[in-house]
């Protein structure tokens, strides 16, 4: 299987803190990978570094889209990274609260559409067609995610679990080849988590989108991840399949031991 995301020696310093310390990580086409580690381990920072929100202090990020060449993307502005096919959700939900659910998803179509100011004012044939396609496509995404009934509700009025799913829908609208999910199950009840698990699997199989997720729900991580990476104090301390991680004494000591007494 081809590698689609690769980091080499990725390091991020915040003043004296080394939030990431020479992290090597790779995701292959069609995989669901999980990034786990205790709070403050640097997982969110890792996402921020590869999506361009922070420029990494050292090291490189490479992507190889399924239909494209391998490219180094560190230093690229955030919107360009998104246009290249990495889309993300946020740990603390960041929707556009006063826009409707559908409009939230429509914003995700921005980087795949072209209409400018003149198009908006004159509403020529091409713009109308594009706009129509944006609505159709966004609505179709909502249907797949199961939020179509709420399309015209304001995002702020959605229940918490739905807000998390709307973030995923919005990210999908950008047509990514790799979806980055930051704690998608946080704050969800077991039933919602189960639905989410099913949704993630469906995104992988039906849309051929690979997934890298940060998650604390160990049951979910162990059951759907092809491979797992473990961060602790900014360092990658282990990687492997669920079974390998489950038995790795270093991991148990650093992380799982506290919660599971494994």
């Amino acid at each position: 299987m081809e590698t689609i995301l690769e980091t080499k020696n990725l390091t991020m310093n915040f003043g004296g803190i080394k939030a990431l310390d020479r992290v090597d990580l790779d995701v292959r086409q069609g995989e669901i990978c999980a990034l786990i580690g205790p709070n403050g381990a640097g997982k969110t920072t890792f996402f921020n570094c590869i999506t361009g929100i922070y420029p990494p202090s050292e090291g490189d990020v490479f992507i190889s889209p399924p239909a494209g060449k391998r490219k180094r993307i560190n230093g690229l502005p955030v919107h360009r990274v998104t246009a290249r096919g990495l889309a993300r959700t946020f740990q603390n939900i960041r929707l556009f609260p006063d826009m409707t659910v559908l409009e939230n998803v429509m914003v995700g179509r921005h980087c795949r559409t072209k209409a400018g100011v003149l198009g908006a004012i004159f509403r020529d044939r091409i713009t109308r067609k594009e706009e129509k396609a944006v609505v159709t496509r966004s609505y179709a995404i909502l249907e797949r995610i199961g939020l179509a009934d709420l399309a015209n509700a304001l995002a702020r009025n959605l229940p918490y679990g739905d807000q998390r799913r709307l973030e995923i829908a919005r990210a999908l609208a950008t047509e990514p080849f790799l979806l980055l999910l930051d704690e998608p199950a946080a704050g969800m009840n077991p039933r919602e988590t189960e639905a989410l698990e099913e949704l993630i699997l469906r995104i992988k199989t039906e849309e051929q989108i690979s997934i890298l997720m940060i998650e604390h729900d160990m049951r979910m991580v162990m059951s759907i991840s092809d491979r797992i990476f473990v961060l602790d104090y900014g360092k990658k301390i282990a990687e492997g399949t669920a079974a390998e991680i489950w038995e790795n004494p270093v991991v148990i000591k650093a992380y799982l031991g506290e919660e599971f007494d494994a």
Binding site: V78, F96, D98, M99, G108, C111
Partner: peptide
């Protein structure tokens, strides 16, 4: 509008 609501998320949406 998205920019007004959340600049970071807006950029992350491309």
């Amino acid at each position: 509008l998205a920019l007004r609501e959340d600049e970071v998320a807006c950029e992350a949406m491309g």
